[in-house]
């Protein structure tokens, strides 16, 4: 990727509310840099999906601006924006069945005119093989397991060849092994291809292990900074409203495991 000055997604003092009485985000500022994994954490309804929709310009903030590589995201042409930011939603919501190959190829939409070019088909085939989906290429997506569907969604986001990827709870439907697989894959991609990743997660431990920075969201308030500094007993208890226990893993990695106190 060529060197681009200011290669970030930047939130500048974003405020957003769906109605007058209920502010979701207030003066939110953070950035996702090149090769960085930024986690979005917070209780349900704290605005994680709203943040994605704001970046995709599906919603309009009441105040503030979002800059993608220095350009205001609302002023970009739709296909230009789609070449910068890819979005992987939580679920598959197909209206009609499509095959795995078709579903992933659709990620090339910003590059396709009348029909897919050789490059489009080639990129799709490559990504499918990289995610171990080649054997399933002609299968119908709606007949696959939750984990496989999740991989298809990821593949579609990756085939878009964007400098930034937004992941809305990519591990939501997955068992433990698949969660680790997906998150390892995302980490490799961010490191090797210098892709900036904004990822919404529910699992605090996964977040503290895989992300470089986090945005912790709660009612009208947020914390942003390096994961190791932000995730601690005080902040977690404040944000989620439960008492927390922490355990140090006795091994060379010395990871901290977080667990809510159960009465």
């Amino acid at each position: 990727m060529s060197k681009i000055k200011n290669n970030t997604i930047q939130f500048n003092d974003i405020s957003f509310s769906y109605n007058l009485y209920n502010t979701i985000l207030e003066n939110l500022s953070f950035s996702v840099g090149e090769g960085e994994i930024v986690g979005l954490l917070g209780p349900n309804g704290s605005g994680k999906t709203t943040i994605f929709k704001l970046i995709l310009a599906l919603l309009k903030p009441q105040a503030g601006s979002i800059l993608i590589q220095g350009q205001d995201n609302r002023l970009m042409a739709t296909f230009e924006r789609a070449k910068k930011v890819a979005y992987a939603p939580q679920d598959f919501t197909n209206s009609f069945p499509t095959t795995v190959f078709e579903s992933v190829l659709m990620g090339r939409r910003p590059y396709i005119g009348w029909g897919p070019s050789e490059t489009d088909i080639q990129r799709t085939a490559e990504i499918l093989e990289s995610l171990d989906l080649s054997d399933l290429a002609e299968r119908q997506v709606n007949r696959m397991s939750g984990g496989q569907k999740q991989k298809v969604i990821l593949a579609r986001a990756l085939v878009q060849d964007t400098p930034f990827v937004l992941l809305d709870e990519p591990t939501g439907n997955l068992d433990l092994r698949r969660q680790v697989e997906v998150l390892n894959l995302m980490r490799n991609i961010s490191q090797n291809k210098r892709i900036g990743i904004l990822i919404a997660l529910h699992d605090i431990n996964m977040a503290s292990y895989y992300t470089d920075k986090v945005v912790l969201l709660s009612d009208n308030n947020y914390l942003y900074g390096n994961t190791k500094e932000i995730i601690n007993k005080d902040t977690l208890e404040k944000i989620y409203g439960v008492d927390m226990n922490s355990y140090m893993v006795v091994s060379e990695s010395k990871e901290t495991i977080w667990f809510p106190k159960i009465n």
């Binding site: 599906l58 070449k83 979005y87 197909n94 499509t98 939409r109 910003p110 005119g113 009348w114 878009q160």
Partner: peptide, 23 residues
């Protein structure tokens, strides 16, 4: 017929289509 690829993207979902640059 010219709208084919926009409609293809829409099969995947309204938000996905919009994220792919479809108006």
């Amino acid at each position: 017929l010219r709208l084919s690829w926009d409609l293809n993207a829409l099969v995947l979902g309204e938000e996905t289509a919009q994220a792919l640059g479809v108006n």
